[in-house]
Design a protein around this nucleic acid. Structure first.
Length: 497
RNA sequence: GGCGCAUUCGUCUAGUGGUUAGGACGCAAGGUUCUCAACCUUGAAACAGGGGUUCAAUUCCCCUAUGCGCUACCA
């Protein structure tokens, strides 16, 4: 049975790239009837926080990925990792390195690495550590004398490692390009490469599905598997998600846009965002794009993953383009087509958080509430729209869009008399439903020798504060006689700037 | 600096040794008419560049360019 894991390091919120990695792991597990596990890689004690762990798990839950077994915390296994390093030392497959640890600069680590490499040039040999072939008794003696040391893997001088990546194909790397990696720090803490390998073995992981940034490091892990005499799992590396312009998508430069919780907080339907994420770097055989969780599970295969990085397109300077257009479109598509039963709870919690919720909506006004939601969702993009653009349906306290007031009211000064007059007509209607309202509106316009649109567009602004919205006749019906009449008579909109 | 990976419309992508290079988002135009940011229809829009191999290359090979990743006693 396949066993996969999602292994985030808790050093911040859940990045959308990580969320997609979790998604692919989850889909792979479900598609093949395997297990989806979660392991929190908290070996970097300095940077790991509990709050981050909490927010990552919350994010996974929102997307609907519950782990099939208890969550593993990597730091709990540190002793085992240490034992493993010691065992390799014992077997002569690793050695003690007594070189004093050099303090690395905090800022641009990458630049420092490149600089060092440039200086060392071609004469640098990755095998020339003086302690690599230190006599065993001498090594033991120095360790006995409490001299600090790190444990490094003894990579053989000749040959190469290779593995067949499920996405990128055959990968080969010369040993001469791989240094003797550190397994255990001089302070006794295990390092990442050792920890992942040990834990993946311990957890019985069969497929490692992770970001492409791990592709070249995989060779180091293969070397550890070999030293341990254990068959490595199958690796499948995923293309990265980039920012517009092909740059790295980072918190530092792109802010909250990279955090999964942003999407929840800004009114995304989890299923819609999940659907969008799935299409970034993977595609189904069919041309369908709207895929629910079950569809994704059925269609998902490693073969469908492509190799080039995907750009997550958005415009930080344009509020309507705050995230990828297609993601927004997809969210709108979900909102207007999903079963009402599923949408209602989401709208309820949105209204609750904006203090617009009334218990009657779940009770005696339930039918009315569902009708309203069903009508207004047609033009909405996010769940937030229910409390913003749709606010007038749930509260008397709503704003008027100045552009709408200018275009549909101020430009037609006569409406200031007509709307209250029309209110009188509506008030007299015994049957306040579609046809009678429509007739009354038509009659009124004939009398005033004006077009229906002028009256209704003006009414829309007066009743909802918006220039766009559902059919106005329907809006009258939904708001009811009392509120319609009151708002038509109100001068509030006219006094807006 | 070294090593690795990638490159099809603006973006996400499909695809093949011979195709009108397909779809989606976005964009544009037209339609609908009570509004449009909804809906319907139509349209513009791509094989990074240069060499090979071949009857034929977007597809296979090489080089260049560009981007990304790794290169750490980070994960």
């Amino acid at each position: 049975m396949n066993r996969v894991r999602f292994a985030p390091s808790p050093t911040g919120y859940l990045h959308i790239g990580s969320a997609r990695t979790a998604l692919f792991n989850y889909l792979f597990a479900r598609h093949s009837g395997g297990k989806f596990l979660v392991r929190v890689e908290d070996t970097d004690l300095q940077r790991s926080t509990e709050e981050s762990t909490r927010s990552i798990l919350e994010g996974l839950k929102w997307l609907g990925f519950e782990p099939d077994e208890e969550i593993v915390f990597q730091s709990d296994n540190a002793d085992k990792h240490r034992e493993t390093a010691l065992r390799l030392l014992e077997q002569g497959k690793a050695y003690r390195d007594f070189t004093p640890k050099d303090e690395r600069a905090d800022g641009d680590v990458k630049a420092a690495i490149a600089e060092r490499a440039r200086e060392q040039g071609a004469e640098k040999g990755l095998r020339d550590n003086p302690y690599r072939d230190l006599d065993r008794t001498a090594s033991d003696a120095r360790a006995e004398a409490r001299e600090p040391f790190a444990i490094r893997l003894k990579v053989s001088r000749e040959g190469k490692t290779s593995f067949d990546d499920a996405v990128y194909g055959l990968q080969e790397r010369e040993h001469s390009d791989i240094e003797d990696l550190v397994l255990l720090r001089s302070d006794g803490h295990p390092l990442y490469n050792l920890a992942v390998v040990c834990d993946d073995i311990e957890m019985g992981i069969t497929h490692v599905i992770r970001g492409q940034d791990h592709l070249t490091n995989t060779h180091k892990q293969i070397l550890i598997y070999e030293a341990l005499g254990i068959e490595p799992p199958i690796f499948a590396h995923l293309p990265l998600i980039l920012a517009p312009g092909g740059k790295k998508l980072s918190k530092r430069h792109h802010g909250e846009i990279v955090s999964l919780t942003t999407y929840r907080d800004k009114g995304f339907v989890a299923g819609a965002f999940r659907n969008f994420l799935a299409l970034l770097g993977w595609s189904p055989k069919s041309e369908d794009e709207i895929l629910g969780l079950e569809d994704l599970i059925e269609a998902f295969t490693l073969e469908g993953i492509n190799r080039s990085n995907a750009v997550f397109n958005f415009d930080a300077n344009n509020p309507r383009r705050w995230t990828d257009d297609k993601a927004l479109w997809m969210n709108a598509e979900y909102i207007r087509t999903m079963p009402l039963d599923e949408l209602i709870p989401m709208v309820r919690s949105e209204l609750r958080s904006e203090k617009l919720w009334r218990e009657e909506y779940d009770d005696e006004d339930r039918v009315w509430f569902e009708m309203v939601v069903d009508v207004i969702r047609e033009r909405f993009f996010t769940l937030k729209d229910f409390s913003e653009q749709g606010r007038a349906f749930f509260s008397e306290d709503f704003d008027f869009d100045p552009a709408a007031v200018a275009k549909h009211l101020k430009k037609r000064p006569k409406l200031e008399e007509w709307l209250p007059e029309f209110a009188d007509r509506l008030e007299k209607l015994e049957d306040f439903s579609h046809d009678p309202i429509y007739e009354a509106a038509n009659e009124f316009c004939e009398e005033k020798d004006t077009k229906l649109g002028i009256l209704l567009n003006g009414a829309r602004v007066a009743l909802t504060g918006q220039a766009v919205g559902p059919s106005m006749i329907t809006a009258f019906e939904l708001l009811g006689k009392e509120r319609s009449v009151m708002r038509l008579r109100s001068k509030v909109a006219w006094n807006e700037a």
